[in-house]
Amino acid sequence: MSLWEYANPARFMRLTERMLPVLGALAVLTVLMGVIWGFFFTPDDYKQGSTAKILYIHVPSATMAVSAWFMMLAGSLIWLVRRHHVSALAAKAAAPVGMVLTLIGLVTGAIWGQPMWGTWWAWDPRLTSFLILFLFYLGYIALWEAIEDPDTAADLTSVLCIVGSVFAVLSRYAVNFWNQGLHQGASLSLDEKENVSDVFWIPLVIAIVGFGLMFATLVLVRTRTEIRLRRASALMSRQRRA
């Protein structure tokens, strides 16, 4: 069986109806486990004190904010190449989720930065590219709303998504490209020396997995909503023509 069969909206709806209760339950379980473990059962950091507890919401939301854009990029490319409507609608559905996660990353980062850096904001490469990513999310959502014809909207937003990917890449890798700015390096890395200590690492990984599952759940629910609205709109036009 080919993966492309799920590009059929009816098949996608049937599959996701079965998947969603399990996915949603796993998302709630892992988010709660990671965050509760991190908040209640990890020690303070020797330098940052109890503010290290912000790690368990800041890093997962920022990680998923960038990953959401890459998921939208995949959906957009599939739309542009293969013209599968479900992929374009999935990209559209992911944008508000990605935008909120980006906002959480920005807000928690500012709150954390104030006592640690002495400022809410700095024009640091990673922070700046993350802010631009947030603006791209807003522009992407606005463009979908501004264009009446859904296929034209999908085409133009896909192009915008490709352009915005530059800032998604920069948000994740700016600290590696430019060794400057206030933001610390990656909290999770293949390089063990760069990783946070194990006592923080395990709940952090669980929280990231939880945020990933929550993102997937919300995107599937929203994609189903978009498919229903698209079908409702098609039925209405058919009735008007009849």
């Binding site: 303070d44 503010t51 919401i57 939301s61 807000v107 709150i111 006592p115």
Partner: peptide, 15 residues
């Protein structure tokens, strides 16, 4: 949470 209680709780609250 010591002297950073407001900082930590406001980050969690906003989230």
């Amino acid at each position: 949470l010591g002297k950073y209680a407001f900082t930590v709780l406001s980050a969690y609250g906003a989230t």
